[in-house]
């Protein structure tokens, strides 16, 4: 198994954290992992992205030109990464603020309105976990129990009381995601 993922959106949407949680989950199930963030000026309100690779074998390049799965959370990210999904691959988008929608026909496109849901339910901070849940519904690359193990490992103990809320958000995401094409 090898999954090459790009997650992209605005700085502050939890893009890097979502990638980190995926990477920790991979670590928990004994996989090779790499997490390569965009770093620097683009994180100040601009776009942020992270490449996460989970693999059963050693990972060669942490920097990629094509992805199995792209998760795009804003318009610039869709414009940048839609063309970089491998044919037959997966694109997940949160349509909040989109004016142009994905148009490829050779990839599987899913929509998850996590931002809208999170704001309506006063849970903006779990938005990225909702999206992660959506991803795991259609690409069960890591087990939810390993996500929770990974969260426990990566979060400081004072935040451990939030684990239940995050688990709930994952299941919400699993319900919210819809196939578009």
């Amino acid at each position: 198994m090898k999954e090459e993922i790009i997650i992209a959106g605005f700085g502050g949407q939890g893009v890097l954290s979502m990638g980190k949680i995926l990477a920790y989950s991979g670590l928990m199930q004994g996989q090779e992992v790499s997490w390569m963030p965009s770093y620097g000026p683009e994180q100040r309100g601009g776009t942020a992205n992270v490449t996460v690779i989970l693999s059963d074998e050693a990972i060669s390049s942490p920097v990629l030109s094509a992805y199995d799965t792209a998760i795009v959370l804003n318009q610039p990210s869709l414009d940048k990464f839609e063309s970089k999904v491998k044919p037959g691959g997966t694109l997940i988008f949160d349509s909040n603020g989109f004016h142009r929608f994905p148009s490829r026909t050779d990839i599987n496109i899913y929509r998850i309105d996590a931002t809208e849901y999170a704001f309506a339910n006063n849970s903006a901070k779990t938005m990225n976990m909702i999206i992660l849940g959506g991803l795991l519904k259609i690409r069960p690359i890591v087990k939810v129990e390993n996500v929770l193990k990974g969260l426990k490992k990566s979060l400081p103990e004072r935040h451990h009381h939030l684990l239940g809320m995050n688990e709930k958000a994952i299941h919400t995401g699993m319900d919210l995601i819809q196939k578009v094409n």
Binding site: V33, S34, W35, P62
Partner: peptide, 10 residues
């Protein structure tokens, strides 16, 4: 370089 410094691996 910045990649090796910033990326996370096992």
């Amino acid at each position: 370089d910045g990649v090796i410094g910033q990326m996370m691996e096992k």
